[in-house]
Amino acid sequence: MSTASAAFPGAASPPHHRPSLLTISWRAITRKPSRVIGITIILFFTLMAIFGPTLYPKQLPINPAELYAPPSWAHPLGTDFEGTSVLAEIITGSRYVLSAAALAAVFTIGFGTLAGVVSGYFLGSTDQIIMRVTDFILTIPGFPLLIVLSTVWSFGSPIAMGLVLGLTGWGGLARAVRSQTLSLRERGFIEAARGLGLSNAHIITREILPNISPYIAMNLLLSVTGGIYAEVGLFFLGVIPFQASNWGVMLNLAFGNGALYTPQALLYMLSPMACILLVTFGIVLTLDAFDEILNPRLREG
């Protein structure tokens, strides 16, 4: 073996040390321009959500003299019906929307993966119970439930919003993860691990999860977009009382104030839409990198 690789330098033998996840991710992302664009968009919005709101006062100033002002240096995206800068609203509103969506994704993935893996691995009565709960989650109409819930809960914090979106949204993922676990369960290496006396916890976390991690990572990103649509939808419908402005609230107010009929309000209405589209676009462009990052076979390709 060693003679063979010495004789053919650069032959198919991989490096002796494994590159870190960061190096691997960097390589996978820079391999295609589309992924670089995607990740740039995602990073841009992430930074906006983290640092953007600190640039503005808590209560954005209103200016009755500048209602629906066209774009200018002071207000690059113009102003709204109260004369508030649209750009400022977009930036300050991004934190709630994006953090709630990210939390929703984390909760969805967390509940869905846990339920799916445990159900598919242990089978029997555990599986029966979890799957009945999953069916229940899948059967209840999520969006109307959210509307009902919003009458009793204010969703003031993104955590509450994320948790509710996560709790109502994990059913489909659980089913998919369960079926993947079922097929992995029959594979030789799982049986070998059991035969070697490795614990169930070990088998689930070290043998099964790494094999479904590309799928989970992709779902995590897709759930972010799902989360954005759901919450923006709720705010747009106006079923949730809001304290501060965010993208959904902007859309609601834009429509409520007749933006459809005033051409000056076009930017006010389009800006949050564009942001939502851009985030989705960034996520979709980045998705295919995950398979490469998390699947060792593709990693070396």
Binding site: M1, A4, A7, F8, A11, A12
Partner: peptide
């Protein structure tokens, strides 16, 4: 003895079996 060569490790000159 040894392993069959992979596509990438086949020598480009000389006898392919020599290893």
């Amino acid at each position: 003895e040894g392993q069959p060569p992979s596509l990438a490790s086949v020598p480009n000159q000389g006898c392919v079996f020599r290893e």
